[in-house]
Design a binder for these strands. Structure first.
Length: 289
DNA sequence: AAGACGGGGTA
DNA sequence: TACCCAGTCTT
């Protein structure tokens, strides 16, 4: 196992690490957990201001647990996947109910929390508690795949073999493990990017298997572009955007900003939003957060 | 194992 | 315009 690659990434991180508020040594485990949930599919630059406002408003799980849902959804704003906001509040309630208002450090307890899956549980353990764990997000998988395995893009699903290989890279030492997890993720986010990797800036360039074989497959593994325009997801987003801005309940089916939406699709989306608990029927045929 | 689920920045 | 992003949950 070429350990010197691991060392090179950790040394690179010493100079290149971004100064992010949830990396502050004084940041609470709750702050780390909030950041990780927000960062699920939303880039750092958009999360940072929302995270600061969120933490100022609800500094502890107990604060968020008793917040009004419409306020929570408005604070979530345009981060996307708003069901995460509801899960985060459910998570806060679970923390106050089951864990005395604190974030647990045991994997099993973390995984039992709403909105916390394999990645987030590992990330909280590593970044909030300094535990030695295997943190595998899309960045880490891409770096390992390229530098050690010579593949341009990771598979759609995490395999047992991939998890096992990544585990073998994590340093035995607790502090080094924590540094490695943050460092390799940062390398994937800043240098070993998906579309346009900056190999000339990479500490692994001279040791990278993928570079050695000529960087094959760049731009290929992209898969089919996910449809967006006119999808239910887009319509749901538009409905939510209207209700976030509204002071009073809104009659959606006659709303001018939704006039171009097929009535059947609009009805389907409104129904699903109600089922998801994101909106609720108000007076008459109007809806609100 | 596959599909659903937001939204905006970037090339 | 197309692609990408610190994933999770449901079926």
């Amino acid at each position: 196992m070429p350990r010197h690659l691991v060392t090179a990434v950790m040394e690179w991180f010493g100079d290149a690490a971004r100064d992010l508020p949830w990396r502050d040594p004084d940041c609470s485990p709750w702050g780390v957990l909030v950041s990780e949930v927000m960062l699920q599919q939303t880039p750092v630059v958009r999360v940072e201001p929302a995270w600061r406002a969120w933490m100022e408003r609800w500094p502890e799980p107990a604060d968020l647990a008793v917040a009004d849902q419409p306020e929570v959804l408005r604070a979530w704003g345009r981060l996307g996947y708003p069901r995460r906001a509801l899960r985060l509040q459910e998570c806060a309630r679970a923390l106050t109910d089951r864990h005395g208002g604190a974030v647990p450090s045991a994997t099993e307890e973390l995984l039992a929390l709403p909105g916390v899956g394999e990645y987030t549980a590992a990330a909280v353990r590593a970044f909030a508690f300094g535990e030695r764990d295997v943190v595998l997000d899309t960045n880490v998988r891409r770096v390992i795949g390229r530098a050690w395995n010579g593949t341009a893009y990771p598979r759609a699903h995490l395999t047992r073999a991939e998890r096992s290989f990544a585990a073998g890279l994590v340093p035995e030492d607790r502090d080094e493990a924590a540094t490695w997890n943050a460092a390799v993720m940062e390398l994937g986010a800043l240098v070993c990017t998906s579309r346009a990797p900056q190999c000339a800036q990479c500490p692994l360039e001279s040791d990278c298997t993928w570079v050695a074989i000529g960087r094959p497959g760049l731009g290929e593994g992209a898969g089919r572009s996910q449809a967006w325009h006119g999808t239910d997801r887009q319509v749901r987003g538009r409905v939510l955007a209207i209700l976030r801005e509204a002071v009073d309940p809104v009659a959606l089916e006659t709303h001018p900003a939704l006039a171009d939406v097929d009535p059947g699709q609009l009805d389907r989306c409104v129904t699903s939003l109600v089922e998801d608990g994101l909106i609720r029927p108000a007076s008459g045929a109007a809806y609100s957060l």
